[in-house]
Design a protein around this nucleic acid. Structure first.
Lengths: 192, 192
DNA sequence: AACAATACGGAACTATCATTCCGTTTGTCA
DNA sequence: TGACAAACGGAATGATAGTTCCGTATTGTT
């Protein structure tokens, strides 16, 4: 945002360093205390003052949004890599999905966003989101062409189903096993 | 709670009336403003003071818990009724599930609890929860005996999967269609 | 080395809510 | 009808947490 197409001046060295620290600390903090983590806590972990956090991220939501955006990009990378892989298309799709869900399982901020609790967060991850859907669409098309995936599956179904799995993840009930949930979902997408 | 096995004195008439009003208002309020509804708002809708709300429900969580408990009982009733119905056991199970999810779709408080956001809420619905699982278990056993349901489905899978569908419900993304999500889930439980 | 321009720190501000408290009112029973 | 317990109302309280402000420190440039 600060360095868009017309970047005015390069960012000062300390500012750049602090920005990275804040992002890392925020990820740790959200992982440890969940989405109700306080901005003060993020600042403390990063070894900076709250004011500094706010210079880099105007609101808590924008900070969360950046965390989500980065993870979505990792998901997109995975999915792109899957498109270059050989193998039975449905299996390739399923593996990519497993990997992406695994990423979500390791990131509390992403789970939070997936559950839809923070609507505004998505505004910061919008582009990455659209791109992931587009890539997923290609994987799906191949599997359907191979006849191993249900014809009526749409790329938009995937984030919907992933949200469900994320709901399972963030539950504390001991008998909720998100990996099992995921496998059931994958089964339901296979052609009969 | 106030009238357990050893009820001491009958409840005063106005107290009984107010309790009902509060519950109804709470349901409306949660439906309208989501889980972050304020206690003051519930009181206003019920036409009573906040103090009165607190005499009946010691905490916000306990109020939410009561709403959830009531709905869980309706789900249990549905499930019991299904056990008395004739028909192909898997279809009977699926219909009961559809009905129960429909109940959840009409109640914001229940969705909130399902998403696991309010851990404490379940303490108030504990018994109803266990009962529902027990009844579901019977429906499942029949369908498995008939060979129309996957052998590895457990009664505990159902609330897990329902949580996922609830996550879909409470999302605002327009392309999230919880009914579709539910049908995919049901398909995944059928025997191949 | 001196001077802007940037960036930083963290105390203070503010808004939001759940919850409490206590003076007043209402229902019940004799 | 009178008396007492049970309930009520709603202003006040207290705690939490996001955000702002401004005096100070750091960086990069001439």
């Amino acid at each position: 945002m600060s360095h868009s197409v017309e970047s005015e001046r390069p960012q000062r060295a300390d500012a750049k360093r602090n920005r990275e620290r804040i992002i890392e600390s925020a990820r740790d903090a959200f992982a440890a205390h969940g989405p109700e983590t306080q901005m003060d806590e993020v600042a403390r972990l990063a070894g900076v003052g709250v004011g500094t956090v706010y210079r880099h991220f105007p609101t808590k939501e924008s900070l969360l949004g950046e965390l989500v955006r980065q993870k979505m990009e990792r998901m997109s990378d995975n999915t792109r890599a899957a498109l270059d892989r050989d193998g039975e298309p449905f299996a390739v799709f399923a593996d990519a999905l497993r990997q992406n869900v695994e990423i979500a399982s390791a990131d509390a901020a992403l789970q939070y966003a997936m559950l839809g609790a923070g609507e505004g967060v998505w505004e910061f991850a919008g582009v990455a989101d659209a791109q992931l859907i587009e890539l997923t669409d290609q994987l799906i098309a191949r599997a359907q062409a191979a006849g191993t995936m249900r014809r009526d599956v749409s790329a938009l179904d995937i984030p919907m189903l992933m949200c469900g799995v994320c709901a399972t993840m963030s539950h504390t009930k001991p008998y909720f096993d998100w990996r099992r949930h995921l496998e059931l979902i994958i089964d339901s997408l296979a052609a009969r």
